[in-house]
């Protein structure tokens, strides 16, 4: 059985994510610090809360840095806010992100209703680990007010259209991110959760 950890910033519903991982056959621990040894095959940064409180919750409870905890080989799935933390900084706050992917997080255009909330299509740009078996045009559930603006477009494997092209799936080395919530995206989401767990097994 593949064993993964969800980092809990203490700010909302991680039950659904835990449940979806368990249904896919994983054993799941909820952790609140990076100080204990990393005994996991994968780590999930969930998508609930605000940028600064979440980063602070990690920094205040952990002497060990995120990068040192995961090193180069633990696959990490960042969902929504969790993905946003991969970048250098965010317009949502003043705290620094983990900076494992070059670029920043910016607010969605003011011409659109914010938050971007609901089911939108994926426009697949290129094959990726998370997208294996996922058709172009599949519906996924978004609920966010910010979007990623990567410095290099090659990390984007899928986009979605919401007034601007919103990076929907990013992948770089062992870091995987989705702007939408796979745990809330019905059967398509299940496939992506399984794809991530498949990477963790390797």
């Amino acid at each position: 059985m593949v064993s993964v950890a969800i980092f809990d910033y203490g700010a909302g519903n991680i039950f659904s994510l835990k449940n979806s991982l368990e249904q896919a056959g994983a054993s799941v621990d909820v952790i609140t610090s990076f100080d204990k040894p990393n005994i996991y095959s994968g780590l999930l940064l969930p998508g609930v809360g605000n940028f600064d409180p979440a980063i602070k919750s990690i920094n205040e409870n952990s002497k060990t840095k995120f990068q040192d905890f995961v090193e180069e080989d633990t696959p990490v799935l960042g969902i929504c806010l969790g993905m946003e933390m991969f970048f250098e900084k965010s317009e949502e706050g003043i705290e620094k992100g983990f900076n494992v992917i070059d670029g920043e997080i910016v607010v969605l255009p003011s011409t659109m209703k914010v938050p971007h909330m609901g089911w939108n299509n994926l426009e697949i740009k290129k094959p990726g680990t998370i997208l294996e078996g996922v058709d172009d045009g599949s519906w996924v559930y978004f609920i966010h007010s910010y979007r990623a603006k990567p410095k290099f477009d090659d990390v984007i494997t899928a986009e979605s259209d919401y007034g601007v092209k919103v990076p929907a799936v990013v992948e770089k080395n062992n870091f995987f991110g989705t702007q939408f919530h796979p745990e809330k995206s019905g059967d398509i989401g299940k496939i992506m959760i399984q794809n991530f767990l498949n990477v963790c097994k390797k």
Binding site: A11, N13, P53, S145
Partner: peptide, 8 residues
């Protein structure tokens, strides 16, 4: 909103 995020 501050605790849980606007989206909630």
């Amino acid at each position: 909103m501050t605790l849980f995020g606007r989206q909630c």
